[in-house]
Design a protein around this nucleic acid. Structure first.
Lengths: 342, 342
DNA sequence: TTGTAAGCGTTATCAC
DNA sequence: GTGATAACGCTTACAA
């Protein structure tokens, strides 16, 4: 009582072969290596394919060919646009060579990510795109044992055996902090994404601390709030920061979504940005320009990163090349939310 | 020279069977129907599974079981949040019964959507979630022939053989237009998403026209601009509307993304919203509340819709129930971008 | 150029 | 409760 609906029986290669009066091997060739087949027989086969509306069974094909032309990506979230653009570029690059991308999201949970990875592998992913490097080493072993090429994006690290296509989160964050410090800010707070299993988040905080230290400030004086990733949480964190303890003149945020929350909270609280307090973001996603004032942030070349990640992965998968590391440049997108310290 | 990387040879059921000293059948049972196996042998098998880090090959399983526990969704775009929340809810519902969702996006192109559908079918999708009903009838035939259950969301229609879980786009749009008309607006413009192959977009325009007619206005006086789906295009369309012809007092938008673009353009042009011109959106996604003024829009119960769509699809797939139609209520989210006509 | 046939890794139907 | 074994639909040597 479990296989209703699927009873129809799709046409198979054999049906096509029979219809066209050739062998299954020939039909297979028509579909995969048209060059090896006479023009006339191919025409006949294609006609049969059309007539029967034949679609190859993917599972069977993967089983026999031991290759799926499918790649997998596990991203922390689909709910906001941080990864959307990069993944889209990644997908476009794959589509241009007739490969497919399967996308899964982990909701920033390590255990979910792990099961998504296993799932993609079981589905025969020829290669994987993952975000950041911070995960259980056993996962890398698992992937290496199976010979599945991996590219890690949005960060740079030193995990052996995998490619990196990302940028230096710490340096970028530091540069932004330096700029803020040069504007006279001394009382600094930071709203970070959850930092466990998130090397990007940690590196961004580290960058700020490094800048503070270099400017002669005590890095321990950085007021740090760690929270989940949403506008609502950004608002809440900003409230906490402004209502308890000494008011910061600068609130840096680990990403634009949190920064948008902060800016909105400021408006609701009647706090002027950047007059009373400056706010910065990270990522440069569209929403950062929609809110007012628009948010000064770190521009990350998402599309480029996605595209290069695909290239790197394909070099490994298709050409058997060794892993490589590509570090992209980021730049500060100067907008109105960062001003001189009151 | 094509199967590098994949040479390692994953462990198979047979490897596990050998390791545990049982037959492949028993291993398979342990994994799928643990009840049919002795506690002790199961323990031994599971140990072997752990030791070998065995993961079942999905293709082989699908081939043999003729069932994948995988569902597919093709949405027009991932780049903005319109579908994100609904699809997330859909996915959550599937995950709760250990099924997987494969998501593909069509970029609002009919031909891309069709190939994505074929792709998902080839991958053995047990059922499909699609947006709207407006597509080549041949696609419905294709799906029906294969006995693949389908649920159409974000709209209500009368395609036989498929489920609908959506809302009445025309009525919702009409209600919003009526509200605007009651505020005295008479010079009305509309920025629509591309309407070909998009029944939702067309219905929303129709709703406005119906409201105009009911209010004694000539529906043909509606100034209509059709454009792609992005903030940038929304801005451009708003520019056109304000700089040519008679200035509208109300600009309604087919969705919130376009409305955000319109609001931003107004700010750039020094046009006060809603003092000089009112703007409305549709969908009620987060970005509508981020921009200032926040946008008056039609609230769509995305999560609920996604969840109910999953339930409906599973009823068809798992229980063999006939297709059904579920029409959800929408409501107007009143915010600041809509005000009385100047 | 085309056909034959041996897998690919599972599940499921039988016996035992 | 467990083990053979025949599918499942396709690719790919190897032959013809």
């Amino acid at each position: 009582m479990n296989n209703q609906g699927r009873t129809a029986g799709l046409p198979t290669l054999e049906d096509v072969a029979r219809q066209a009066g050739v062998s299954t091997a020939t039909v297979s060739r028509c579909l995969n290596n048209p060059g090896q087949v006479t023009e006339t027989t191919r025409a006949r086969v294609m006609e049969a394919v059309e007539k029967l509306r034949y679609t190859p069974n993917f599972g069977a094909r993967a089983l026999a060919a031991r290759r799926t032309n499918t790649y997998g990506a596990v991203i922390p979230t689909m709910e906001n646009a941080i990864f959307a653009r990069g993944v889209q570029a990644f997908q476009d690059a794959l589509a241009s060579i007739d490969s497919t991308l399967l996308v899964a999201s982990s909701n920033y949970e390590a255990s979910v990510e792990e099961s998504q990875i296993r799932n993609l592998v079981a589905r025969g992913a020829d290669g994987l795109l993952l975000i950041g490097a911070d995960r259980d080493p056993a996962i890398y072993d698992f992937l290496a044992e199976r010979g599945i090429p991996v590219v890690l994006a949005w960060a740079i690290g030193n995990q052996p055996g995998v490619s990196f296509v990302g940028f230096d989160n710490e340096a970028a964050s530091r540069k932004l902090a330096e700029k803020a410090l040069s504007l006279g800010h001394r009382r600094i707070a930071y709203i970070s994404a959850q930092s466990t299993h998130n090397d990007r988040a940690r590196a961004r905080v580290d960058g700020v601390r490094a800048a503070m230290k270099a400017a002669g400030l005590d890095p321990r004086s950085l007021r740090l709030v760690e929270t989940h990733y949403s506008i609502k949480r950004g608002k809440a964190a900003f409230h906490v920061l402004m209502e308890t303890g000494e008011r910061p003149s600068l609130v840096m945020c680990g990403n634009d979504v949190l920064a948008v929350g902060a800016v909105m909270a400021a408006r609701e609280m009647g706090i002027d940005v950047p007059g009373d307090v400056s706010i910065t973001g990270f990522d440069d996603i569209e929403i950062a320009t929609v809110v007012s004032p628009p948010i000064t942030t770190v521009h990350v070349p998402h599309r480029k990163m996605g595209n290069l990640a695909a290239q790197a992965l394909l070099r490994q998968t298709l050409e058997g090349r060794p892993p490589e590391t590509i570090c992209l440049e980021t730049e500060i997108a100067e907008r109105a939310s960062l001003g001189p310290a009151g």
